[in-house]
């Protein structure tokens, strides 16, 4: 597999860099079971270029998957970028000529994505108090983007999201009283429906690149983009699972609710009530708990062999410890 990608990157270097361009760097950065990220570079006719390849390495069915295709992802990055959102520049969408399967190429943006560093590294001490407001600001152009025609985007409201995750939870066969109570409570507190907008869908500390001087540099990882309640993107970044050891700072482990909401309103977003964000935050904890259960099941069913999977199952109790507090506090 690795050899194929390297050969593909050689061809890409020639295609993007012009005749005589040769690969100077190719390194697999990360990736889960189905997605690969490669850093590569070449010396081209216009000088050296450093790029990122995102490529799917497992079969994908856009109809049934929760995530969007990489072509859709790239189109959304371009559309939100054109609308003023900070995103990496899309350099090239791969086609059959490239021999890399479903993939696209983007420019490399420098900055930090490791959540723990954003919440705790002294390099971010000065900028940290500004980050929650910036996160509110960058959501505005994303939510205001009209998706390009022809994209297959799912639309999900609070009730539908609860239905979907309750179905998944029931199918696991797990019996967890705290998750039951969270489902029941959230069903009784579903906020009034709003006109659905484009959502990033995975807007959390870890998927945002931050610069220690300027703050938000780029919003990454668009594969869960869909249409829905703008408060969903806010609630997810407030979910304690993504606060990296700083539960005292509700927004991503670096900021406060008021700054997130104020940044959103100041940048022209329709003001959002905190209780609405808290609904999606609680649903975020519940959703992550159920995702942890399904990762355990992917191991117990024999689909995945990694020791990581069953251990993630033991993280359900993290979300339960969060949920009992949220249930006590209310929205």
């Amino acid at each position: 597999m690795e050899l194929d990608v390297r050969a593909g990157l050689e061809r890409l270097a020639a295609r993007l860099g012009g005749t005589g361009a040769s690969l100077t760097e190719a390194q697999r950065l990360s990736g889960g079971a189905s997605m690969e990220t490669w850093a590569f570079g070449f010396d081209g006719a216009d000088g050296p270029e450093s790029l990122i390849l995102r490529r799917r390495s497992a079969p994908f069915d856009e109809e049934t998957a929760r995530s969007v295709s990489l072509a859709t992802e790239a189109a959304l990055i371009q559309a939100t970028g054109a609308n003023g959102a900070p995103v990496p520049p899309v350099r090239h969408i791969c086609d059959a000529t490239d021999g890399l399967g479903e993939a696209y190429v983007m420019g490399r943006v420098s900055g930090e994505t490791l959540g723990k560093r954003i919440t705790s590294d002294p390099r971010f001490d000065a900028i940290r108090p500004a980050l929650a407001r910036q996160c509110g600001e960058v959501l505005v152009p994303i939510h205001a983007t009209t998706p390009p025609p022809g994209l297959k985007l799912k639309s999900v409201d609070g009730t539908q999201e609860l239905d979907r995750y309750e179905e998944v939870y029931r199918a696991t066969g797990a019996e967890r009283p705290i998750l039951e109570l969270a489902f029941q409570y959230l069903r009784r507190h579903v906020p009034a429906p709003v006109e659905p907008v484009l959502l990033h869908g995975d807007f959390r500390n870890g998927n945002i690149m931050f610069d220690p001087e300027r703050g938000v540099a780029a919003v990454l990882d668009w594969e869960l983009a869909h249409l829905g309640d703008p408060a969903e993107d806010m609630g997810w970044i407030c979910t304690n699972s993504w606060r990296f050891g700083r539960p005292d700072r509700p927004v991503g482990g670096f900021g406060d609710y008021a700054d997130l909401l104020a940044g959103y309103a100041a940048a022209g977003g329709r003001p959002i009530e905190l209780s609405r964000v808290r609904f999606w935050q609680m649903l975020g904890s519940l959703r992550w708990g159920i995702m942890c259960l399904t990762m355990y099941l992917s191991w117990s069913s024999g689909l995945e062999k990694s020791v990581e999977r069953p251990m993630i199952g033991r993280r359900v109790s993290e979300t339960e410890a969060d949920l009992v507090v949220l249930l006590e506090e209310g929205l």
């Binding site: 009283p177 705290i178 109570l181 304690n240 050891g245 700083r246 539960p247 005292d248 904890s285 033991r314 993280r315 359900v316 109790s317 993290e318 339960e320 410890a321 969060d322 949920l323 009992v324 507090v325 949220l326 249930l327 006590e328 506090e329």
Partner: peptide, 25 residues
């Protein structure tokens, strides 16, 4: 109910992920 579930959650996280800092810590 919530008081009991809170005790159970605390006992379970002390086994599963003792370094995790739950909401409200």
């Amino acid at each position: 109910l919530l008081a009991a579930l809170t005790v159970m959650a605390k006992n379970q996280i002390a086994i599963d992920q003792p370094n995790y800092k739950p909401e409200g810590t």
